[in-house]
Structures are given as C-alpha cells and as structure tokens.
Simulated assay, not measured.
Amino acid sequence: MKTLLAAICAVAVATVYAAQPVLGQMGRDLQVPTDALGWLVSAGQLGYLVGLVLLVPLGDRFDRRRLIALHLGLVGVGMLAVALAPAAGVAFAGLALTGIFAVVVQTTVAYAAAVSEPGERGRNLGFVTSGVVIGILCSRLVAGVLADVWGWRSIYVVLATLSIALAATALRLLPTDVGPPSRRSADLVGGIGRLLTEPVFLSRGMIAFFLFASFGTLWSGMALPLSGTPWQLTESQIGLFGLAGLTGALGATRAGRWADAGKANRVTGAALVALVVSWVLIAQLPWSLALLIVGIVVLDFAVQAVHVSNQHILTAQHPDRVSTTIGGYMVFYSLGSAVGAAATTLVFSTSGWTGSAILGAVFAAAGLVAWALGIPAVRHAQRREPAAVRASR
C-alpha cells in the first residue's frame, strides 16, 4: 500500500513541476515572454494553494480513498487541457486546474499518517513523501527526454494517462478511510485559520514557506542559464540534473526515523544550515557544473529532511485532524514555491544567475531564522505531547 501511495504522490506532484525543464520550449510555442515564464510553474502552484484551503480539509470528514481517486481523475483532465492548449491562456487555465486537484498529494500523505501507528508515523511519512520528491525531480528528467523526442505537449499526455490509471487503481486497492462524521466541511476549512494562532504551526509554516521558495528558486530558474552560454544544454541534458536532486532527497529518507526518535527539531535546524551552504556551491553554475551538482544534492537532502520533520511534528500535535493540519501547512509550501518560481525568472532576467543564487540563499537564511525563533514553542509543545506518542519512541 505504501508503494501505491508514494506512486500517487509522485505522479500528482509531477504535474505541477513538469514545466520547469522545458520552460523555454513552452514559452516559444505559446509566445510567453522570458520574464513571465515562471508563471507557467506558478499558475499550478497558485491553483495548488486554492486546493489546499478548499479540498484537503475534506479528508477529515470524507473517505480519503474516494477523494484520492476523484482528484486524480480531475488532474488528468487538467493535463489534457494543457496538452491540447492552442494558446497561453488555455495552458495557464489547465495548469491552474491541475494544481487545484494535485493537492491529492496532501490527502494521500494525510491518509498515510492517519493509518500509521504513532511509533511508525515518521518512517511511513518519509517513505510516502519520498514519492513527492521522486515526482518533482524525476519529472524533470522524463520531461526533458519527452520534450526532445516528441515536444513538450507529450509530457502532459503521459501525465494525464498515469493520473487516470492511478485513480482507478486507488479506488480498487486502497481500504476505505472515513474521518470523524461530526465535522462539517466549513468547520474544517475554518480550522486552518485557527491553526495560524498556534506558535508551533506558524513557525513550521514559515519554515516551509522559505524552504520551498529556496527550492523553487533553483529548480524553476536553473534551466535558463544551463540552456544559454556557455553550457547550451538541451532539455534532456538539463533534466538529468534531477538525478542529482533525487540522490540528495532519497538520502534524507532517514529523517523519518530520526523524527520517530524525537530528533525532528534538531534535524530541521541542521538541514537548514546545509541549505544555506548549498547555495554557495549552486552559485558556481556559470563556471562549474561539478560544484552545481554537489550543491543540488545538498539542497535536496536538506529540503526533504526539513519537510518530513515538519510534518512529523505537526501530525504528532494534531492526530485528530491530520488532513486539516497538513493542508494548512502546505499552504505555506505552495506560496513559497510560487514566489520562488516567479521571482527567480524575474531576477535572472535582470541580474543573471548570481542574482538568483543570492535570492535562494536569502530564502534559506530566512528559514533558518524562522526555525530559531520557533524553538521555544516546539519545546513547550513537546512537553505537552500525549504520553502514548512519547512512549512509542
């Protein structure tokens, strides 16, 4: 079951990020100017934000299995709209629609957390969210290859097919999972607003915002300098850098075990320091691909370690409203990703890769500051953690 859940996460999140290595090709075909290319990624991420607020909390009331199948099917519809888009406006609309229902990722993560024993939650979250990272990073490799062979539209045909196939598989194989029936949908959506008053949730949310703004700065902007002078790489070659990111991210799968052992907050701080350092290496892109690769490995290790640790801390604090909590947390993720994607192409058009690297490093440093400011709140919350959770460690 964990493998199926990870596959769902991989395909769903790939639909939001598949445009990153082929922004140039898409822009030329759809006549989108260079300084607006980042919006081909941000459109999906802003749609994702809407879905996080309106759709993910429904998992605390309705059968998550049916929600997963329905949302995957609608992701497939959005992908087909992009694949057939005759103009930029239709593509933007299709990407936004896809983003809204791609929040099936978070419903899937919430499903995994809800059915896990407390002592295994971190490991299961680590495994399932590895599908998210695989989807984000491998989508770049596959998208690059498909774009070179059949053009960028083929990417979205393949993703539509996979989404619809997984929807049918989930409906058939996943056990029924119904949240507490007493909760009304409006109460669930309002619950995200109430979470914002909690110091632990707010600190983890701000970390997520800056974390994924930094992540988006790299992966939404990197294709532009790599396709230009002096490297002049093809979409397929640019996609290969996803393998470096995948190596780093999968190296962080132990973050779930560290979280189960009570080390989630320390892992978060150490990983954010590594994130800042990674930008020193990534900034060398105009002169050294080797240092860029090392920087990518470090960055994606850090991002995955922080992401798993954050979700472990939050789901341990709110075991009775997992979907609402994860949905609210991922609002920050989506906003950060959208800001990073839009800002990096704008900064690159005026200041080159040096400007983009400084932007990514600033986002990373801000995440580290947010972590430091949130330490007292996390320690206080952990002292009040349910005895059953502490005993399971």
Rank of each mutant, 00 (worst) to 15 (best):
S185R: 12
S185F: 15
A186S: 15
A186M: 14
A186I: 11
A186T: 14
D187P: 09
D187I: 09
D187M: 10
L188S: 03
L188F: 03
L188T: 05
L188P: 05
V189K: 08
V189F: 10
V189H: 08
G190P: 05
G190D: 08
G190H: 09
G190S: 10
G190T: 02
G190M: 07
G191S: 06
G191P: 00
G191Q: 00
I192D: 08
G193Y: 07
G193E: 09
R194I: 14
L195I: 10
L196E: 06
L196W: 14
L196N: 07
T197S: 14
T197R: 15
T197C: 03
T197I: 06
E198C: 01
E198W: 14
E198K: 11
E198D: 15
P199E: 06
V200E: 00
V200P: 01
F201P: 06
F201M: 07
L202W: 10
L202I: 01
S203G: 12
S203N: 04
S203D: 07
S203T: 13
S203A: 15
R204A: 13
R204M: 15
R204G: 13
G205C: 07
G205V: 08
M206G: 03
M206W: 14
M206Q: 10
I207G: 00
I207N: 05
I207H: 02
I207M: 11
I207P: 05
A208S: 15
A208L: 13
F209L: 15
F209N: 05
F210V: 09
F210N: 10
F210C: 01
F210R: 01
L211K: 01
L211I: 09
L211F: 05
F212M: 07
F212R: 05
F212S: 04
A213H: 02
S214M: 03
S214T: 03
S214V: 09
F215C: 05
F215I: 02
F215S: 00
G216Q: 12
T217E: 01
T217W: 10
W219I: 12
W219R: 04
